[in-house]
């Protein structure tokens, strides 16, 4: 309850703010919530049928999920999505972590220019990246290969790894490294024994970001991928453009589930490292 001495204008401020915030949060979550029940529609439409509104069990069905898991194209897409996401995450995480460690050094020359370059894949519009890669990868004859897709997705994931790892390194005392090397440790064992344990939360959440980035990505796939390299988002994209059916919603609901899992993993990591006072939000 509000204190009784609050003036009307203050009450307005108080309640107004809460109402607005409530509405905005609803706006944010509503589309995601709507997707899930619709994916259980027995009819092949994107709409709530009367039966669904009456909670008639006959109006609900899991057939679109069955379709998703049995249809050859969706299966292929699911496999491709995981495959590309795994491979590109590994590449992005290794390259990005190593670079972030270098970047965090006090002595890094051209620091801001290099940072700007490493972050730039996040800023350049995907269509431009896609067009450039399409021309260039065709010219050097790697278009249509798995490698091309993995590289392309890794490039999109790299900024996230660099950012999260750099953030964990922000509170990192560089003299620890000097101490380690003055004690005779070689740079590699210094990295694994001193640096890595400290930046691990950043590396993991960077990797998760990279994973999600690849998993969700569709523009580069549209431009670069062969028919047998289609991913879930690509399959959804053509479904939305060509033939809308609730299998897309089933796929969407499964993706939401994956995001929820990833979100909680990241949050747990964040909490853990925040309690150590090192990982910035």
């Amino acid at each position: 309850m509000l204190p009784v001495y609050y003036s009307p204008i203050r009450k307005l401020w108080h309640y107004g703010l809460r109402i607005i915030v409530g509405l905005v949060l609803l706006f944010l979550i509503f589309p995601i919530l709507v997707t899930i029940p619709l994916s259980f529609n027995v009819e092949p439409f994107f709409t709530f049928t009367e039966g669904m509104l009456k909670l008639d069990p006959v109006a609900y069905s899991t057939k679109w999920y069955v379709e998703f898991f049995t249809d050859h194209k969706w299966n292929l897409a699911l496999k491709n999505s995981f495959y590309f996401a795994f491979m590109s995450t590994i590449l992005a995480t290794v390259l990005g972590t190593v670079a972030a460690v270098g970047l965090a050094s006090d002595r890094m020359p051209f620091k801001s220019l290099i940072t700007a370059i490493l972050i730039s894949p996040m800023i350049v519009p995907l269509v431009i990246i896609a067009a450039g890669m399409y021309f260039f990868y065709s010219a050097i004859n790697i278009a249509g290969s798995d490698m091309a897709i993995i590289f392309a997705h890794a490039i999109l994931g790299i900024p996230f790894v660099v950012i999260t790892v750099t953030a964990t390194l922000a509170g990192f005392d560089q003299s620890l490294l000097r101490a380690s090397s003055s004690l005779g440790a070689n740079p590699i064992s210094t990295f694994f024994n001193v640096t890595f344990p400290l930046i691990r939360p950043g590396v993991i959440s960077g990797a998760l970001f990279a994973f999600v980035t690849s998993f969700d990505e569709v523009v580069l796939i549209i431009f670069l991928a062969d028919p047998d390299q289609r991913t879930i988002p690509r399959q959804m994209f053509s479904g939305l453009r060509e033939q809308i059916n609730p299998t897309i919603l089933a796929a969407a609901s499964l993706l939401i589930l994956i995001s929820i899992i990833l979100l909680f993993t990241i949050e747990i990591l964040r909490r853990r490292s925040e309690s150590k006072g090192m990982f910035q939000k």
Binding site: L28, I32, V34, T35, F46, V218, P233, L240, I260, L262
Partner: peptide, 22 residues
């Protein structure tokens, strides 16, 4: 409420808007 949409695929959110607005 903010992070879940942030982490949810762009395609999913666009699909949802089609279902809402069509």
């Amino acid at each position: 409420f903010v992070l879940l949409p942030f982490w949810t695929s762009l395609l999913v959110r666009t699909t949802a808007w089609i279902a809402i607005l069509q």
